[in-house]
Design a binder for these strands. Structure first.
Lengths: 229, 229
DNA sequence: TTAATAAACGTAATATATACATTTATTTTT
DNA sequence: AAAAATAAATGTATATATTACGTTTATTAA
């Protein structure tokens, strides 16, 4: 190592994943029960130290794969958590990784032992500063759901407008007017209506839609700023 | 250290500050010329390793104080930069810190030796991944300037509407209609018009305004989302 | 055939955004 | 003292977006 770096103090760097899922109307968070001291038995986000040969992003993806078996998952950096005394075990910073999983898409989802989905509206106390991470991640989720079509990551590839509205009502904890919700959404021209209907929740059935990623990208590139709600 | 932590590999953690200033119509960035190998003589953002007894945020504030003598500076975390090979000297991650300084406010500003303001429109090549940090920070600046009254951090406490418009035109690299800019801005009701005028750029003079932080906070707390442009 | 259910649809009123030209306050020059 | 010069300040009409609110439709089950 170069001289220049001698006075740097090396410390432990972890990632912690704040993983949201959405299952039949309920927003959920993936947690696991710590098996080791300190704080054994406490509910925790799922994390890992980063390895010498990986970036933080790669560490996040690795953790997510180890836990769920999934590879193509929406993930973005949340923020760093670096208070000196945040971890009683050692000086250790953590980079929060915000992730979304569409539970109804993922046939292959095989959750590892000791890992459990928890309804966001009824979370246990978490270890360390993980409660704060969840608070921050929920704020991020709301921001993203408003300004990006990211809510769709939580739904199956084919979804109905009432399904999307229910998801938004869960995320924002408030009701939306169904006529205005639909009108605004469709006016963005980023959904493709399919011929099929989903009849699981009504006799009439609701048309299925897919997200038009190409159109969305074009709009974004033109600098179009949109708000879904 | 607890057993649990044994398999974590400790690494160097740095902060790099992307410090914007605005001086008489020009958006600037604070850079310094590296005095040490590797990459001696290369232009660099201003950074430091984080010390054992400080958080990343504290490290950012320390660096900013060491370089500029300032304490109360707007600073927020940008993102982490963690590619395995980002630094040829050693495995080292960096947390970018986005900072804004109002140059015309800061009478006390005493820039350290070797540190220089550079016009954002004419930046040199920077070392490591610092060019990417600047790109990311400019995107953040545009986002913040649109959705938060953060552009004001770059202006004196008392400023005119034409001054603010010129700043926005510099940030977004486009012209705004002065009638609509003024109308929208004033409709937000977060500016206090003073009796004084600034006559430095016209014979008529332009009224000075101050930001009404209290009103802004109230609006924010009510969930009001505003866009300044 | 009827009843039940959630999905789909439309419109009027209000608010916001855009496009665009003239007047005003002041200083400097004549 | 009057005229010229300068940037600041202002207004309005049009288009677009948001909000509030009830009725009809497609389908299944009784």
């Amino acid at each position: 190592m170069s001289d220049k770096y001698k006075h740097g103090e090396k410390i432990l760097v972890a990632v912690d994943c704040i993983i949201f899922g959405y299952d039949h109307g309920t927003l959920k968070l993936l947690l696991f029960k710590r098996l080791l001291e300190p704080l054994k038995g406490g509910w925790s986000l799922i994390g890992s130290f980063i390895l010498p040969n990986e970036s933080v992003e790669e560490a996040g993806k690795r953790v997510l794969h180890e836990i769920t078996g999934l590879d193509e998952v929406y993930m973005e950096e949340l923020k760093s958590y670096t208070a000196v005394d945040r971890d009683p075990g050692a000086r250790c910073i953590s980079i929060g990784q915000f992730a979304l999983i569409g539970l109804e898409n993922e046939e292959t989802l095989e959750i590892k032992d000791g890992v459990q989905w928890h309804s966001v509206s009824d979370l246990p106390e978490l270890v360390l500063d993980h409660n704060q991470m969840v608070v921050d991640a929920l704020a991020r989720l709301r921001n993203r759901a408003q300004y990006y079509p990211i809510g769709l990551e939580l739904l199956p590839k084919k979804f109905t407008i009432p399904q999307l509205q229910t998801l938004y009502e869960e995320i924002f904890q408030k009701k939306f007017d169904s006529r205005n919700f639909r009108k605004k959404l469709l006016s963005l021209n980023i959904l493709i209506q399919l011929k099929e209907k989903d009849k699981s929740s009504s006799k009439k059935g609701a048309f299925l839609y897919e997200f038009d990623y190409t159109k969305y990208r074009k709009l974004k590139n033109k600098g179009f700023k949109f708000s879904l709600i």
